[in-house]
Nucleic acid binder design. Structure first.
Length: 527
RNA sequence: GUCCCCGUCGUCUAGCCUGGCCUAGGACAUCGCCCUUUCACGGCGGUAACACGGGUUCAAAUCCCGUCGGGGACGCCA
């Protein structure tokens, strides 16, 4: 391809559901390449599979792309000079070019039946190990064939594969050569009149002036047929770049049974789009030097290189995605994370909210979490909870479970939890708890629900001095009383949140420090 | 079966084209230490790989051949 011709790439998904990581990675590489070269990104909808394609999936897939931050310059929603951009709207174009190939003698009519072909395939693979069409109808007289067709005999249209090896260049794999012996004359139009995928792809890519075809390597073996088609049509052959497959942990092609693989899943989990983009870029590509891992979209556009894409398949690693996500959660403006986090809390406490609203909101049979009004004070408080917890989560959906000890303290569960058994059984624990309890109950600030971190620390220090217990033996029991668990965020930040939370009117009352100590004492007395 | 593609730490990868700078670098995970009057977060450090076998060469992860392993394609599927 001449360097002067502007780069045009395309992403051509079938509207059969949410986008999968494999597809999205292909879209991403196309996008990066286009943006880097000041080129054009085309979105084309491959909806010739009428059975599985649905209009609503088209909208979903566009949403998925937009969420990730990928945009396009031409497409069904945007128009463009080379439309229409839906294959179902292009059937006439396909027909026209098929007839042209026929008239020019580059293609021929094939009257073979399903059974004949099946028989041929069987014997061919037995003999040559390759199930190749014999080209029987290729030898038919064109005039005769034509009249048979006009007389109503059903037939398909096949392309003549030239009698020479087919070569093409692939940016990822280098030069690839296929012997014509292994490529049979492909059907380009079915006897039903419907064109075949390998044919329409070529027509579309050529007519849309696509300069670089960047796609999954499952198409590599189809490429010789497509190259032959370009040549038969007299059109320039584009550059190809075949991206390796993304595998699951078991080294099988990544699929639904590997868990979350659609990008909607990641969005729901609370994976930030920039984290996913960064991770996907690293699957099959590495920057020069290979030591840098963190890239913003802008940096990716600058650094990305198709030539540096690896040909070998890559295993999708959730843990690394999570690591990147944690990084981006920490990096992004707190307000953004706080806002995103709200939906996860509301989902988790939806039941409580529904109960709460049922009293004063009439004629609302179904109250969804998103209806929760989030009064400003409550919203701010949840924001502080998010600020407290977000550095410790992999994905936003973990926030509510991490917040449960704050939102819904359960003294009985704390006492019974096997995780706490050891700490509660330590010889010094009773003494620590006894002193701690007395001090909290006597404290003026704590009584009001206004205990400060300083005062709290002072009390802990006094307990330490009076009992002679320190470190783990001191902190774990106290932590269990306050949070129901021996691990959690620093008391300095936690105490104000508990105290503040207890003054809010929430569907479920948040216990302050004193209330927790009381509840724990009561529950322990009973057990 | 035939053809095509692929094969560096458990995983993502750098290095391979243009052999020596590779006692193979980085990252995730893992392990250990430090920080935090506890845990996590964070910081520091460790373990860990050139699929195998032949060649070529003074010298091979890098070039050649073979073997093995994985994936894909061979459709009137997309």
């Amino acid at each position: 391809m001449a360097p002067t011709s502007p780069v045009r790439v395309r992403f051509a998904p079938s509207p059969t559901g949410h986008l999968h990581v494999g597809n999205v990675r292909t879209a991403l590489f196309n996008w990066l390449f286009a943006r880097q070269n000041g080129g054009v990104m085309v979105l084309r909808i491959e909806d010739t599979d009428v059975e599985r394609s649905e209009a609503r999936f088209e909208a979903m897939l566009m949403d998925d792309l937009k969420w990730l931050g990928l945009d396009w310059d031409e497409g069904p929603d945007k128009g463009g000079a080379y439309g229409p951009y839906r294959q179902s709207d292009r059937l006439e174009i396909y027909r026209e070019h098929a007839e042209r190939l026929l008239n020019e003698g580059k293609a021929y009519l094939c009257f073979c039946t399903e059974e004949e072909l099946q028989k041929e395939r069987d014997s061919a693979s037995a003999e040559k190990g390759q199930a190749i069409y014999s080209g029987k109808c290729r030898r038919l007289d064109p005039q005769e064939a034509k009249s048979r067709r006009t007389n109503g005999e059903t037939c398909a249209i096949r392309l003549k594969i030239p009698e020479r090896p087919i070569r093409f260049h692939d940016i990822v794999r280098g030069d690839v050569e296929f012997s014509n012996e292994v490529v049979s004359d492909p059907v380009i139009v079915r006897s039903s009149g419907m064109p075949v995928y390998n044919y329409v792809v070529v027509i579309d890519d050529a007519l849309m002036k696509i300069t670089h075809v960047i796609r999954g390597d499952d198409h590599l073996s189809n490429t010789p047929k497509q190259v032959a088609l370009y040549e038969a049509l007299g059109w320039p052959v584009p550059e190809f770049a075949h991206l390796s497959t993304i595998l699951g942990a078991d080294r099988e092609r990544l699929s639904k049974r590997h868990g979350a693989t659609s990008i909607a899943n990641f969005r729901e989990m609370g994976v930030l789009p920039e984290a996913l983009m960064n991770y996907l870029a690293l699957l099959g590509w590495a920057p020069t030097g290979g030591t840098r891992e963190i890239f913003t979209p802008t940096e990716l556009i600058k650094e990305f290189s198709l030539k540096r894409v690896t040909p070998s398949p890559a295993v999708f690693d959730m843990e690394k995605l999570y690591w990147l996500n944690r990084h981006y959660i920490k990096e992004s403006p707190p307000e953004r994370v706080e806002k995103l986090a709200l939906q996860y809390y509301s989902r988790a406490i939806a039941e409580d909210i529904t109960k709460d609203l049922a009293g004063d909101v009439s004629s609302r049979d179904k109250t969804s979490a998103s209806d929760y009004p989030w009064p400003p004070a409550v919203r701010d408080w949840f924001a502080s909870v998010t600020r407290l917890l977000s550095p410790y989560v992999d994905r936003l959906e973990q926030l509510p479970e991490r917040a449960m000890p704050i939102l819904d303290y359960d003294a009985k569960a704390a006492i019974e939890s096997p995780d706490n058994a050891e700490a509660l059984a330590w010889p010094q624990t009773d003494a620590v708890l006894a002193r701690f309890t007395v001090k909290i109950l006597e404290d003026e600030q704590a009584r009001e629900g206004k205990l400060t971190p300083d005062q709290f620390n002072k009390i802990v220090s006094e307990v330490k001095a009076e009992t002679g217990v320190k470190g783990k033996e001191l902190f774990h029991p106290i932590r269990i009383v306050i949070m129901g668990s021996h691990s959690g965020p620093a008391f300095d930040k936690l105490v104000p949140i508990l105290e503040e939370g207890s003054h809010l009117s929430l569907p479920k009352h948040v216990l302050n420090v004193r209330e927790r100590v009381e509840a724990f004492g009561k529950a322990r007395a009973q057990s």
